[in-house]
C-alpha cells in the first residue's frame, strides 16, 4: 500500500490532482483511492487530500494514515499546517517553495533530518498555465522523485485526464509537468 497526503488550500487543485493521479494509476491495473478532508470548506482554507494505491482492492476508509509521500502545494502551509503529522522515518516530502531545500529546512526546523525535496510549483504554474494552480506540476515532481512512471507515459495519460480542458491549457499543463520534473531538487 502506497499512501500520499497532499497539503493545499481549497482552490489550488489538490483534489483534482489526487483524482487525476488516481485515474492514471488505475489504468496500470492497480487499485486506487483518492479523497479529501475539506475542513471549513472555504476557498483559501487549508485542506488535505489523500491517495492510496495498492495491488489489491482498498478496503480502508479511515482518514488516518502514515504517509509515504507528503506533497505540499502551498508554500505557507509549511509553517501553519501540521505537514509532518503521523510521518515515519521513510516519509518523503515534496514541498512547493521559492527557497532551496537547505534554506527551507533552516526556516522550518521540524523538517530537519527528513527526506525533503523542493520545487517552485507556484512559479512554474504561473509561467506556464498563467494561474497559480500548482497541482499538475507537483505530479511531475512526484514522478521524478518516486520514479512511479516514465514521464512521457505520465504526460500522455494526463492529456487524457485533462481532455475536457481547452487544448492551450492542456499543452501548458504538459510544459508545467515537465518543468517540475526537471527542476525538483
Amino acid at each position: 500500500m502506497l499512501e500520499i497526503r497532499w497539503h493545499s488550500r481549497a482552490g489550488q487543485g489538490a483534489v483534482t490532482g489526487a483524482k487525476g493521479l488516481a485515474d492514471v494509476v488505475s489504468t496500470t491495473g492497480k487499485e486506487v483511492q483518492a479523497f479529501a478532508f475539506y475542513g471549513s470548506a472555504k476557498r483559501g482554507a487549508a485542506m488535505t487530500a489523500y491517495n492510496r494505491v495498492d495491488d489489491k482492492p482498498i478496503m480502508n476508509h479511515e482518514k488516518f494514515m502514515h504517509p509515504d509521500y507528503v506533497l505540499v502545494i502551498d508554500p505557507a502551509l509549511v509553517y501553519t499546517a501540521d505537514i509532518t503529522a503521523h510521518d515515519t522515518d521513510e516519509t518523503v516530502y515534496i514541498i512547493t517553495t521559492h527557497m532551496n531545500t537547505e534554506d527551507l529546512v533552516a526556516s522550518q526546523p521540524k523538517l530537519e533530518g527528513k527526506k525533503i525535496h523542493t520545487v517552485d510549483c507556484i512559479k512554474i504554474a504561473q509561467e506556464t498555465i498563467g494561474k497559480p494552480i500548482p497541482n499538475t506540476p507537483m505530479l511531475g515532481a512526484l514522478m521524478k522523485i518516486s520514479e512511479m512512471y516514465e514521464i512521457d507515459f505520465f504526460k500522455d495519460s494526463m492529456i487524457r485526464v485533462l481532455s475536457k480542458l481547452p487544448q492551450k491549457i492542456v499543452d501548458a499543463n504538459m510544459v508545467a509537468i515537465q518543468r517540475a520534473y526537471d527542476e525538483v531538487q
Binding site: A18, K19, A22, D23, S26, E31, V32, Q33, A34, F35, A36, Y38, I58, H61
Partner: peptide, 12 residues
C-alpha cells in the same frame, strides 16, 4: 452512500 467517505472518494 456515506457522505464524503464514498460520495467524494474516487475509486475504480
Amino acid at each position: 452512500q456515506d457522505g464524503f467517505m464514498t460520495s467524494h472518494t474516487a475509486q475504480g
